[in-house]
Design a protein around this nucleic acid. Structure first.
Length: 405
DNA sequence: AATCCACAGGAATGGTTGGCAG
DNA sequence: CTGCCAACCATTCCTGTGGATT
């Protein structure tokens, strides 16, 4: 009896669509990075110092999301380590994404474990971890390159103390021990202004800027990857162009473009279609956005979800196409009472609104209405049905969602 | 030009949780 | 077990501000 599962397994193994889907995954580092030759050269020439067993200058990398900052950096570092091995020089690197590892402690712990130090994931003071790291590094000769991806997150939330410490770690090390250099990656151009002048000058010894890709460049990138990821004849010009155009609209984000292509491919596969079409891409676009919103909203804390409901209700009641912080807060208080939880203060809600704005659930722009005060113009930025469906998952809120409509 | 609204958003501080070391 | 610490969430108190109206 040939069952359904067999069929599904078969379909994946002998995919008509994909040859190697992983090539479209966000963490895949390809061995060719089109339109980033200049950046590879710049990053490479800074870090190449390590091959002479001397400390490369600290490096600061700017560029919007999906402009290849991480890919280029990791690509260069991999090649560098390879070369160092051939030459018998001790070079290694740690990559820390400070958005995922968003506290000084976690960052230090990652760095420590990269030099072979075992550290508990909590319980010690940051000072202690730092001291242990210094001790380990003083026994470790060679060059260590620390990559801090999305450093702006860490600094925004925790300040630049850690960065300051890391830029000065050389002074805490005895001569002849490890040489440490930092690579900071950020997608916020104004980020530098948040830094202490000393950190700024130290971290910015070298700078490389990653401009966004335009639609044409995105097309090249997509072709490059698609030709390896898909079976021949599955993808055509129009599909690639369409993906590139959609992503170019969003400030030339290559990651989005690749995601889009991958999801479109998955859709085609599931439908058992022979080729990927523009229709698949359209559907994929909607799907990606919906999944993201659902995922984000359902993991939000209670008060944040109440704030979203309050925003929707306030907007409907107001008769305008937006609401304000004050209105939102009034509705929020009502809803909180309705489900019997204590309301948080307006100050806190104000921060929650900002958090929701950053997540792309709400859009909140500061406006001044003159005599009528300065406030934020708040609108729902995500698909309402998706948001409500995610909120209604919580039994406490289901009734509120239903009576709201 | 001065006023003043309706908040924005910084700073300091408190309370709670989870997890380590000894 | 106790003492300690990081990490959050939240509160209180606060100063700052763009621009329509006076």
């Amino acid at each position: 009896m040939s069952d359904v599962l067999d069929e599904i397994f078969e379909r994946v193994v002998a995919s008509r669509i994909f040859r190697n889907r992983d090539i479209l995954s966000p963490d895949y580092i390809p061995d060719r990075l089109p339109h980033r030759e200049e950046q590879i050269k710049r990053v490479g020439s800074v870090l190449a110092q390590a091959l002479k067993n001397s400390r490369p200058n600290n490096l600061f990398i700017y560029g919007l999301t999906g402009t290849g900052k991480t890919a280029v950096t990791l690509y260069v570092l991999r090649r560098l380590v390879e070369k160092a091995k051939q030459l018998g020089v001790r070079v290694s690197y740690v990559y820390v994404n400070t958005r995922q590892r968003d506290t000084p402690y976690k960052v230090l712990a990652d760095i420590a474990s990269s030099v072979g130090l075992r550290v508990p994931f909590t319980g010690l003071s940051t000072a202690e971890i730092y001291a242990r790291l210094v001790r380990a590094l003083s026994r470790w000769d060679g060059v260590l390159i620390i990559v801090l991806d999305e450093v702006d997150w860490l600094v925004r939330r925790r300040g630049d103390d850690l960065l300051y410490k890391l830029t000065r770690i050389g002074y805490d090390l005895p001569p002849g021990s490890a040489k440490v250099s930092l690579v900071g990656i950020t997608n916020d151009v104004r980020f530098v202004e948040m830094l202490d002048a000393r950190v700024r000058s130290s971290l910015g010894e070298e700078e490389v800027i990653f401009p966004p890709y335009n639609a044409e460049q995105l097309r090249d990138i997509l072709w490059e990857r698609a030709s390896q990821a898909f079976q021949p004849g599955v993808i055509d010009e129009s599909v690639i162009s369409y993906c590139a155009a959609l992503a170019a609209r969003e400030h030339g984000d290559a990651r989005r473009a690749l995601d889009l292509l991958r999801v479109a491919g998955e859709m085609a596969e599931r439908e058992n279609a022979p080729r990927v079409t523009v229709e698949h891409v359209k559907k994929a676009w909607i799907q990606i956005e919906r999944d993201r919103i659902y995922e984000v909203v359902s993991t939000l804390p209670l008060h944040a979800r109440l704030a979203i409901l309050a925003a929707i209700r306030a907007q409907r009641t107001s008769g305008r196409d937006y609401t304000t912080t004050g209105e939102l807060y009034a509705h929020y208080r009502e809803l909180a009472t309705r489900i019997g939880v204590e309301a948080v203060t307006q100050r806190r809600i104000s921060d929650i609104i900002n958090e929701l704005d950053m997540l792309g659930i709400l859009s909140a722009r500061v406006i001044s209405r003159g005599r009528y005060g300065k406030t934020r113009m708040i609108t729902l930025a995500a698909d309402e049905d998706t948001v409500l469906a995610a909120i209604a998952q919580d039994p406490r809120l289901r009734e509120v969602v239903n009576t709201l409509l």
